[in-house]
Design a protein around this nucleic acid. Structure first.
Lengths: 203, 203
DNA sequence: AATTTCATGTAATTCGTTACATGATTCC
DNA sequence: GGAATCATGTAACGAATTACATGAAATT
């Protein structure tokens, strides 16, 4: 089962899925990709790579060759076992916390999976968000007038944000079920997958 | 300076600001308050309380008596030094990461501070979000057409969410400077009443 | 000439969780 | 009588950060 810390592993496997890469570049790509969260440090990345080597998920690709005798970079490649592990981590339904924490990473690598998995991940997240929403709203109702002004405003904003994300997910799910060819329409940049104007409740 | 782990400390001090409380209740309140993130475990809370006791930020309030000789609960109260520390943590401008991680907690305790601090915290967060926004958008422009379909959609949604939060913060800042209630647009629950006096034991 | 970026790594530390241990009390 | 909740704690472990250490190549 996926442990809390398989996050880096998933990210590395996902990136190497695109092609061989060395540590430094992996870090750069990762920090751009997850521009929002924290940056990944070398102290996390390199040990993780070593661990993955030992676990035979990745292999070193000989990289002596450099134009002007540059410092030898260690280029990694994903193994068959690594591919397997990648797909396992992408599709696994395990402890909620892990799936929530890694939703963004999974989403970012959606192109490397098939629709079945994508739908499962999207729907899984949506239902967890809805569940949380229900809990919080029940709580809000219970403690109605008693809440502090600012705490209440925070709660309100949180609910709204989650509701927005639920709508976003619903749009994505609809798009995924509708037209979906993996060979996407060539315009990848500006046009978003869908637009949402008003709340279509839940489903 | 505030360290990463002063999060629990801030939360505990903030709650005890409302009145004395024991560990179990602190945990419950905290888990409701931060309904979104992870739940706080006893393994974090109790050691933290001990540490704060040693640091003289809180004191035990004798709690011998209970109706039917219940297990003695250890009720804590914030000291003068604790009050000081609370205000320091609420207003501190330090490493960005800490302030971002603890924005919600700070916000939730806004009623216990004054407007000057509130404005500083709100504006600080807004400017950090705007900075991040600028960086990401510059990055989006640089790698224009090259992005993956899903990675791009994720980026887009992220940008939109942050823009929404910036607007939210701007509304709050305006309300704070003017004198309107933070809930300017008629959207959610009833006008909240700012009352938090009673230290109701959950017994 | 100096600084930034490239490139890889290790050691110490911090923060927090899970699992374990214990026992009283209230609700059904 | 049994389950859930109240109530406090400890030990082992996990994941990731910071700081340290090193050095070459490219840029200004």
């Amino acid at each position: 089962m996926a442990r809390r810390g398989d996050t880096i592993e998933l990210a590395v496997l996902g990136l190497l899925h695109e092609g061989p890469m060395h540590g430094y570049e992996l870090r750069k790509r990762l920090n751009l990709m997850l521009g929002w969260g924290r940056v990944l440090s070398y102290g996390s990345l390199y040990p993780a790579l070593k661990k993955m080597l030992r676990a035979n998920l990745i292999t070193e690709v000989a990289t002596t060759t450099t134009p002007t005798s540059r410092r030898p970079r260690i280029v990694y490649e994903v193994t068959d076992a690594g591919h397997e592990q990648f797909h396992r981590l992408m599709s696994e339904v395990g402890p909620t916390a892990w799936e929530d924490d890694n939703f963004d990473i999974r989403f970012a690598f959606f192109s490397s999976t098939d629709m079945e998995i994508r739908l499962r991940v999207l729907e899984g997240r949506r239902s967890r968000l809805q569940e949380r929403l229900a809990r919080v709203q029940a709580e809000l109702e219970r403690t109605q007038a008693e809440v502090d002004r600012y705490a209440g405003e925070l709660q309100r904003h949180g609910v709204e944000s989650v509701e927005r994300e639920v709508r976003w997910l619903s749009d994505l799910i609809r798009a995924e079920r509708g037209d979906d060819p993996p060979t996407a329409p060539p315009s990848a940049a500006s046009p978003s997958i869908t637009r949402h104007e008003q709340a279509s409740p839940s489903n």
